[in-house]
Structures are given as C-alpha cells and as structure tokens.
Design a protein around this nucleic acid. Structure first.
Lengths: 354, 354
DNA sequence: TTGTATGCGTTATCAG
DNA sequence: CTGATAACGCATACAA
C-alpha cells in the first residue's frame, strides 16, 4: 500500500476503477452522462482512495472560481464584521467562499488588495471603497468582467451596484428631532483626517458616507439658521487623545453646544467616555446620538440614542446583488438604500439653556 | 486592435515581446535568469497588454497557494474579529491571503468548511475547533500535508500548534480575588447547551476553553469549601431570554450568590443589562467579572472588571506559527499560552452579606 | 541566456 | 454511454 504524498486525482481514481479518465471525471465532477454502474464503480474507487476534488484545477478549467473578495476598512470594527457575517451567510448559501482583506481605509492598500484578489481570479468583489473619487482599480475589475458591489459607500463614477444607508436622510431626522427639543448648536464629530485639521471642501472627502452626512449636516444647520455650521463639524477624532481634544473644544465652544453627533460607534464610545469622565450626565448636560447600534450603546445608562445601521443587512443585500450579477443579471447598476432609523433611547434631552 | 475578452497570458506577452514563452514566464514570474534586454522587452510588452498574473495557474504549477483558511465560531463576535485582524495583518506581511469561514460553533459546519478549504488547496488552516474531541477532519488535513494551528482552543489529540489563553489560571486568579473580598458563592455563566440543560460530565464539553474554565471553577470552589460547586455553574445562556432566566435563577439562589463570572463578553453584556434592569447596582449588590475586554465594558459605570484576552495577539501568534510551519519548521507541536490578566476595574466589591 | 517540451488536475470536445 | 485528447496558464527540466 504505497501512498503518493499528494492527494489522489481523477486519474488515480480512474485507474483504480478501471475506467477512462473522462468517465471518472464526469461522475466525480457531476456533469455529463454516466451509467449507474460506472457511477458506482467510480464512487467506490474514490472513497477507497479518499479522493478530494481540486478546486484550483477546476477553476482553471472552467474559468470560474467560487471565491468572492471582500475589502473592508477594518474588520475589527463591529460595523464591518457584522456586514461580513451577512455577506458570509448569504454567499455560503450560493456555494461561494469569501476572501477577506483589510484596507485600513487607505487607498493604496485597497488598490493593492484589489490587484491581489484579481490575481486570485475571484468571481466578484464586495468593497467599501475608501475614496469614491479614486475607483480606477475597481473600474478595471469591472472591465475585466469581475462584478463589483460597493457597500456602505457609493462611487457615482463606478458602474456598480451600491448598498448604502440613508446617510443624508438620517442626519436630517436626527437634527429635526434635536431641534424639536430646542437644540440649535449641535456638533458633528467624525474621524476624517485632513492636512490642516480643518474641514475643507466637501468634494475632498473620500468616504462617501462621511461626505453625505457632513453635507446633510451643513445643509440642515444652515436651514435652521445657524451661521457657520462648518465650525460645528469636528473632524480628526481618530483616536482616544484626539477625541479628548475634540470634546474639550466642544465643551469650550461658544455659543454653547448642547448636543453631539458621533459619526460611528467607535467615536461615540470615546465621546461618551470623555463626557462621563468629566462628570457630565446625559442627557441633562449634553445630548448624544451615535451612528451604529453597537453593543456598548445598550449597556450605558441611559442607553444611547443611535441611528441604527443594520450592517448585517447591508452585507446580505450586497452579497445578493453580487450573486445576481454572477448569474448574469445585466440590468443597469443600482443604488440600494437600506433604512437607517433613529432609535431614540435615552440621550436626547431638552437643550440645556444658559 | 482586437481584444481577447479574457486577460492576457504569458503566451500573449511572449508573442508581443517576440520572445519564447519560457523567457516571458521567467521575467514575469521573477524567477530563473534573464538578460536585462529580455527583461525590458517583456516588461514593456506586459505593460502594453495590461498583463495580470493568474495566481490560480501559478498555484497549480507550483502546488503552493498563497491562501490560508481561517475558521472561527462567529466573526461577528469582537473576540474573533479582533483575532482575525491579528491573523490578517501578520499573514499579509508574509504575502498570504485569508479565506474566512464561520462555523457558528457547529461541528458539522466546521467539517464542511475544512473540506471546502482543503479543496481550495489552502496552504494552511487556522481554526478555533468547536469540539476538541472530534478533530478527525483536522487530522486529515495534517496528514494531507496542510499545517493546522488552533486558536483559543486546544485539542490534545491533534498534533498541531495551539494558541490559548490562561483559561485555568485566569479563573483561579479571579476566584482568589473574589474570595479575598469575602465572596463564597460565585456563579459562573456560560453559553454552552446540553440536552437536559444541566452541566454533565466535563469530558462532554466540546470547546476546550470552556471546559478548562469550568474545570478550574469547580476545582477552586471545591477547594474553597463550597459543597456543590456544579450548582453554581449556569449553562445555557445562549440568548437574551435564556440569560434573563439564568439571572433570575442566580438571584433566587440560596445561599445567596454575591458575584457572577461571565464566560464571554456577549454574556457579560447581557448579564450586566439584566442586573441594571432590575435596579441592582454594581458592585454593591453584585460583583461581576467578564471575560474579554470588549468595548462595552469600558463605558459602563462602574467599568467592568474583565479577564483581558488579547485576541489580536492570539491571531498574530497563530499566524506566526502557521508561517513557520509553512516555511518548514518541523519541531514538535506546541501549546502557546498567552497571558490573560485580570483587569480589576470597578465591579468587584466586598461580598454583600445577609 | 534562451527555447522546447512537458506537467499540474480539471473540464470539455469529439469521435467511437 | 464511453474513451482519447486537447485545452486552461503557468512553472520547470533539459537541451541548445
């Protein structure tokens, strides 16, 4: 019983079953036609040898590879890991597997990852593009015949399906709610970095979801009669220290800021911690709304009011669209907007006056 | 300018550069020897045609596939997504990519996933095995020459490197600390399911980390003179409702339970919420220690005392070991234990008496 | 240094 | 229904 070190191939099975390679291949691959007797002999031989198909070779022959590439900003972030779970569950049902990559929200890494995945000949790509204005690498994928779906973000230049939340609308809802409670000076805090630490032109914001929300913020604040809404958009909350300083600036702001919007759950958590560290109580001293319903926002007291972004659904929908494209759907690319309602729990209170 | 629909191959480049396929392959693949002039001509041709290597074909030829399979219980859980990030970062540095799968902590799915990944001819496997006693599928991978590293869990029967936390020791540390504060009746809450809802034989617990911790729990409690420590191990906290009922049983327990240990951060969060919903304050009315330093445990007041499991490091180490194996390290498999210290923040108080 | 020929494990074509 | 045989795209032993 001499074992070849590598695993048995169709040829080995064919030999063992005393049929031709073609016949063995047909029954093992489950295609073409084979007699019951042939089928039986081959299956038995395969069992005996412990045959395991080689999907690499299969992909080479067919040109199809049951692998889908996923590129997110940060898999560690629950926002994305939940989305990945949605993608994974949906893909699995269609017999597809998922290669996952982290861009760390850096364009250069994203470009590199796309290239790597394309080399692996993935069947399709689901990407949270870090810069909506630089999508040539994604266009190239499309041209090469690899369908692309963007998630959480939208790149108008890219002829691909996109799954997004109601970025513009949600901020409108939140601001209306706050204004109804008497808030006029509301701060929006986000993590974006710029050279000078200031909010520049909106068109220079790469992540479309961020851009949309800031645009909506400025628009609504202006409509509400706030003079320089840009002064109320605080960027650069990239880490703990940076957030500390942002919160300091917010608390020292004049006229007084009475409510804070956190653009994602990491920032929300940091802001919350800062506020409680300073002995402020919510919502009496400050109102707070965070985007994404993370675990932490349900254990604080009071619980945090959040804009609920159901990213598992984002992922599901993205995977569904990709599968549709893979199955030949050639309809024009479409933007799918997933509802992101405001869950007002306990951190929106009346504006603190004086 | 007639375009072939599929992407150009070495043959195309060779033709364009007017050299042999072998020469083109050598410079494109970066192996063997080629003259500078040849190199130049080929690269130019490749550029002109937009050549992208086909890693599938490359893997077929070489037998190596720059893909590593990762199987975790639940990518949505920060415990695992953090580990995956560690794996991903480390793997990337070694030019490896990662295919990720969810077992949902079900053996059948894990077996299926291993099979799928092996078919893809992954270079190696990093797995959090859902049942340490059923690892034949992993043994098979090993036999087939695919290195395996287990993460968070250890399967003694499996001759593979394992990366684990200090499961046994950490519970000892926690219990000593609690006992020092006067606690005698401490509950351990975990998610494991059994047929009858009762803690059966320890050997029947599949997830080794869970088994180790419960074993350590029982041992220490017994040493401390507690009569039926098994009565204090509450299993089946699998969801919100189940946790509610567990907490109810804990609060009604006699003799009174004065401290709760939560075996992971999901359970910890649920228990915390249950306790606050009932108006109990920590640590006056109840002490609480959770495993894993999740986001939420730093925003509560007081902050939660936790056993810090640095899963990013788990992932890093696992990837490092796998890479070593891939590079030919044939030393005997080893168990690597990552320190998991107790971060005592604010939820261990003196035992409530009477 | 370069070219020729063959193999990797499948799928797929086309006679028998 | 079955069996030769040729792809698929790249790597590589060997010859030139």
């Amino acid at each position: 019983m001499s074992e070849k070190s590598s695993s048995p191939t169709v040829a080995d099975v064919a030999r063992e079953a005393k049929v031709s390679k073609a016949t063995a291949a047909r029954v093992l691959g489950g295609y073409g036609i084979a007699s019951d007797s042939a089928r039986r002999v081959v299956m038995e031989a395969a069992d005996r040898l412990g045959y395991q198909p080689n999907d690499l070779a299969r992909s080479m022959s067919t040109g199809r590879s049951g692998l889908v590439g996923v590129i997110v900003g940060d898999i560690e972030n629950a926002f994305f890991s939940q989305a990945v779970r949605g993608i994974s569950d949906t893909l699995r049902a269609a017999d597809l597997n998922l290669i996952i990559s982290n861009s760390s929200e850096r364009l250069s890494e994203e470009v590199e990852m796309v290239s790597v995945l394309l080399r692996q000949r993935v069947a399709g790509l689901i990407v949270a593009p870090t810069d909506s204005r630089h999508v040539n690498h994604l266009k190239a994928a499309l041209v090469a015949g690899t369908p692309v779906v963007t998630i959480d973000r939208h790149a108008p230049e890219l002829a691909a399906d996109a799954i997004c939340g109601e970025d513009r609308e949600s901020i409108g809802r939140v601001l209306s709610r706050l204004q109804g409670a008497g808030h006029r000076h509301v701060a929006y805090v986000t993590a974006m970095e710029t050279r000078d630490g200031k909010l520049g032109r909106l068109e220079d914001i790469g992540i479309s979801a961020v851009r949309e929300r800031i645009a909506g913020f400025l628009e609504h604040m202006r409509e509400a009669g706030v003079e320089n809404p840009a002064d109320l958009a605080f960027i650069g909350a990239t880490g703990d220290d940076e957030t500390t300083s942002v919160v300091t600036r917010i608390l020292e702001h004049s006229p007084p800021i009475t409510a804070i919007l956190a653009s994602d759950s990491l920032i929300g958590a940091r802001v919350f911690r800062e506020l409680s560290d300073r002995g402020l109580s919510l919502p009496q001293d400050m109102s707070l709304v965070s985007w994404f319903d993370a675990d932490w926002s349900r254990v604080t007291s009071p619980r945090i009011s959040v804009v609920d972004q159901p990213t598992y659904q984002f992922g599901q929908k993205a995977a569904e669209r990709l599968i549709a494209r893979l199955q030949g759907d050639a309809s024009p690319p479409k933007l799918f907007v997933i509802p992101t309602p405001l869950l007002d729990r306990g951190t929106i209170g009346p504006a603190k006056t004086g």
